[in-house]
Design a protein around this nucleic acid. Structure first.
Length: 496
DNA sequence: CGCATACGCGCC
DNA sequence: AAACGGCGCGTTTGCG
């Protein structure tokens, strides 16, 4: 089978109980591997661009192209995949993943519509109460959702001081959370706005649209985009199931509306600190490797290192800075951003970062090596050959070149972590099929970057828990162990 | 009126 | 002096 968006074709075959062809060549995915920041991965876009031929909707294939054109495009892609050493990642990872994603999308996740409607009512009441309070504090009615109008009320009418406040790209005073948080003690209205923002977002982005998106089977069926990122991660749309809020009272109530079918439970498997483990492994940094081998609290360990104190002298505050730093390093954070994120003065922040790289010398070296390679090749790749082009890394614009450098040092880490999850998905799928459990006793539902969520018949949950943990922890060999944490619940709200 | 952009914010 | 990587989506606003 050759073509575009073969996931949809596989879904059709599955729904009709027809066999899936053994040989699958998805042209969009092939071109995505060759260049992950192409504008589109459709035939309409790729055929004219790479074959210099017109898109012709009148052809017999019904796809707008003849079989010959598809073959020609396949030939082009095959050659490039071979040249770039991407055949393995294409044939052994991305193509096998298609059927896994197809099943996940067909499965969907159960959403209790009535529970959600009740939550909607509760939220609506809270919102109108907050709106009235905000109008009263402002002394007039305005559109709270308009940053422009809100800014006018706060900084012109209520005369809240604007000194030192961040501006947006167009020069207006920002009204984002970070800015408002700093003004919390300046006026009663700020706290109300913050509260309003949180629950309005919950309602407008999640509660309202999700009620519309519940299918006839009572479930939400997302669409996974296999060509949606430049790093190899998956993305999710209509709805995006990878940014469901959690951790607050109301957002956990929203998560609580996702329910396992009767007789089933949710079980989630979460790779613990996978990006930092990948970084430790890629860089070969002895201290970080040792910490993971001994299963230490990595943020605490980092805190001890950069503060030059023993582990038992690490304060919660020191650990918190170290955590920000650990994540920041993966992303190429500068001292200004670290200062903001940590609340430290810029000079202190600078010292912290210097100390970090002095302690974890191999990480610094590795990052320099990656940047050099990127400058030499104008691309970076990960252990599996996945590649990202970084044409701006030799730009004369300092800003653009630096941005490419940050993208360069992030890519091998984020993309290998993404591959490890994809490898797990395929392996777990094969395991479930072999057992005869797939889509029946066990359903793979969601993939959220470092996490897999399943719905499992309660009577086999112990076995499944042990087996999937084992599969995931042994999915890829790093020089540090992979660790998976597991949680179960009757609703998604009971998890984590 | 639809569409693109700016802004803001949810997640890993 | 500033610049944290990767996404999708809702609302407002200005433009044609």
């Amino acid at each position: 089978m050759i073509g575009f968006n073969l996931k949809e074709k596989i879904k059709e075959l599955k729904k009709k109980n027809k066999p899936i062809p053994a040989e699958i060549f998805d042209l969009g995915i092939a071109f995505w591997l060759i260049n992950p920041d192409e504008k589109e991965y459709t035939g309409e876009y790729l055929v004219p661009k790479y074959l210099h031929k017109e898109f012709d909707p009148s052809t017999s294939s019904g796809q707008g192209f003849s079989e010959e054109v598809l073959e020609e495009l396949k030939k082009y892609a095959e050659d490039k995949l071979a040249e770039f050493e991407m055949k393995h990642v294409f044939y052994d990872l991305e193509m096998p993943l298609l059927k896994v994603l197809a099943d996940m999308e067909i499965n969907g996740i159960g959403l209790n519509k009535k529970k959600l409607a009740d939550l909607d009512k509760q939220i609506s009441k809270k919102i109108s109460e907050l709106v009235q309070k905000i109008y009263k504090e402002a002394g007039e009615i305005f559109n709270i959702n308009s940053p422009k109008q809100l800014s006018d009320i706060l900084f012109n009418k209520l005369n809240i001081s604007i000194k030192g406040l961040k501006k947006t790209s167009t020069g207006a005073i920002s009204t984002n959370i970070e800015t408002l948080e700093a003004l919390k003690n300046e006026h009663e209205i700020i706290g109300l706005i913050l509260e309003y923002r949180e629950i309005f977002k919950l309602q407008s982005t999640y509660i309202k649209p999700f009620q519309e998106l519940v299918a006839k089977d009572g479930r939400i069926h997302t669409n996974y985009l296999q060509t949606g990122t430049v790093t190899g991660r998956l993305s999710s749309e209509n709805p995006n199931m990878q940014n469901i809020p959690g951790g607050t009272e109301l957002s956990d109530k929203f998560r609580g509306c996702f329910e396992a079918e009767k007789g089933y439970e949710f079980i989630s498997f979460d790779y613990s600190q996978i990006e930092l483990r990948v970084l430790a492994s890629l860089s070969g940094d002895p201290k970080m490797i040792d910490a993971f081998k001994r299963d230490l609290d990595i943020h605490k360990m980092t805190a001890a290192q950069v503060n030059n104190v023993p582990l038992d002298k690490v304060t919660p505050e020191m650990r918190s800075f170290a955590k920000t730093l650990n994540f920041g390093v993966v992303y190429g954070m500068g001292f200004v951003a670290f200062a903001k994120a940590s609340g430290l003065p810029a000079a202190e922040a600078k010292k912290f970062i210097a100390e970090y790289f002095d302690d974890f010398k191999e990480i610094k070296k590795w990052q320099e090596k990656v940047k050099e390679e990127a400058r030499k090749n104008c691309f970076v790749s990960n252990l599996n050959g996945r590649r990202r082009w970084l044409l701006n890394i030799i730009s004369s614009s300092q800003f653009l070149a630096s941005q490419s450098e940050r993208e360069a040092i992030n890519m091998p880490v984020q993309s290998l972590a993404a591959d490890i999850l994809k490898i797990s998905m395929v392996k777990v799928y094969d395991y479930l099929v072999k057992r005869g459990w797939n889509n029946d006793q066990v359903r793979m539902l969601l993939t959220i970057h470092d996490e897999l969520l399943f719905e499992v018949k309660s009577d086999i949950i112990k076995k499944v828990r042990a087996d999937i943990s084992e599969i995931m922890e042994s999915a890829f060999k790093l020089s540090v162990p992979l660790k998976v944490s597991v949680e179960t619940g009757k609703t998604w709200g009971e998890i984590k």
